[in-house]
Amino acid sequence: MEQDFGEFPSVFLGFFGLVAAFIVVVVVMIVVSLARSRRVLRDSGLDPLAAPAEVAVRLARGPLAAPVRSLEQRLAELDDLHRRGVITDAEHDAGRRAALTER
């Protein structure tokens, strides 16, 4: 005794086709987005598979992670560099002016 369900209504078939098309469009968009992201990461010199870790390491080693030095520390460093002859009088004066105006 086999039951006959008859023909599917055309509204159901239309809805099914719409859902299938939507799924295909979403999958294509995901693939395109992943390909573009991979290209951007490679062009930036990052490994696409390890990008979050590489970015975290770069941030940890960058200037944002460096501790903030006090005005006294910056001036002492300038004085030390000048005393050792690493920087000239003009560079020493310019550095002191810059350090004092940053406050």
Results as ranks from 00 to 15, higher is better:
71 L>H: 11
102 E>R: 14
9 P>L: 04
78 L>C: 08
35 A>K: 12
73 Q>M: 03
99 A>G: 00
54 E>I: 00
49 L>A: 12
6 G>F: 14
85 G>A: 13
100 L>I: 11
38 R>F: 00
43 D>H: 00
57 V>A: 14
100 L>H: 08
12 F>T: 03
95 G>Y: 12
70 S>C: 04
43 D>W: 00
71 L>I: 15
16 F>R: 01
7 E>A: 13
57 V>D: 14
26 V>G: 05
89 D>K: 05
101 T>A: 11
71 L>R: 15
32 V>F: 14
92 H>F: 07
40 V>I: 00
95 G>M: 11
96 R>K: 15
38 R>I: 05
82 H>R: 11
18 L>C: 05
39 R>I: 10
4 D>K: 14
12 F>W: 09
5 F>G: 13
84 R>E: 14
81 L>H: 01
28 V>S: 08
75 L>V: 14
87 I>C: 01
83 R>K: 07
42 R>D: 07
67 P>V: 11
56 A>R: 12
99 A>N: 02
41 L>K: 11
6 G>A: 15
92 H>K: 05
76 A>F: 05
6 G>S: 14
102 E>K: 10
45 G>W: 04
23 I>Y: 15
59 L>W: 07
9 P>R: 12
13 L>T: 14
4 D>A: 11
96 R>I: 15
41 L>A: 15
6 G>H: 09
57 V>T: 14
90 A>D: 12
74 R>T: 10
82 H>G: 06
11 V>F: 14
42 R>W: 06
54 E>G: 01
84 R>T: 12
46 L>G: 00
37 S>D: 11
48 P>L: 06
96 R>N: 11
1 M>C: 09
62 G>D: 04
30 I>K: 01
50 A>M: 13
7 E>H: 10
88 T>G: 10
86 V>E: 13
91 E>Q: 06
103 R>P: 01
29 M>P: 00
31 V>P: 03
36 R>D: 10
76 A>N: 11
4 D>Q: 15
5 F>M: 14
15 F>H: 06
40 V>G: 00
13 L>R: 14
83 R>P: 01
58 R>G: 13
81 L>T: 04
21 A>K: 00
72 E>I: 04
33 S>E: 09
71 L>C: 02
17 G>R: 03
92 H>A: 10
43 D>Y: 00
66 A>L: 07
84 R>P: 06
76 A>Q: 13
77 E>N: 10
92 H>W: 09
75 L>N: 04
99 A>S: 01
93 D>G: 03
76 A>T: 09
51 A>C: 03
64 L>Q: 04
55 V>F: 15
87 I>W: 03
9 P>S: 10
57 V>I: 05
26 V>C: 05
2 E>C: 08
7 E>R: 13
31 V>D: 02
65 A>F: 09
69 R>I: 11
76 A>M: 08
73 Q>T: 08
17 G>A: 09
15 F>E: 09
36 R>M: 14
48 P>M: 02
89 D>Y: 06
61 R>S: 07
22 F>Y: 08
2 E>N: 13
9 P>G: 10
14 G>S: 13
82 H>M: 03
37 S>H: 05
7 E>S: 10
82 H>L: 04
88 T>V: 07
8 F>T: 11
3 Q>Y: 13
35 A>T: 12
9 P>Y: 04
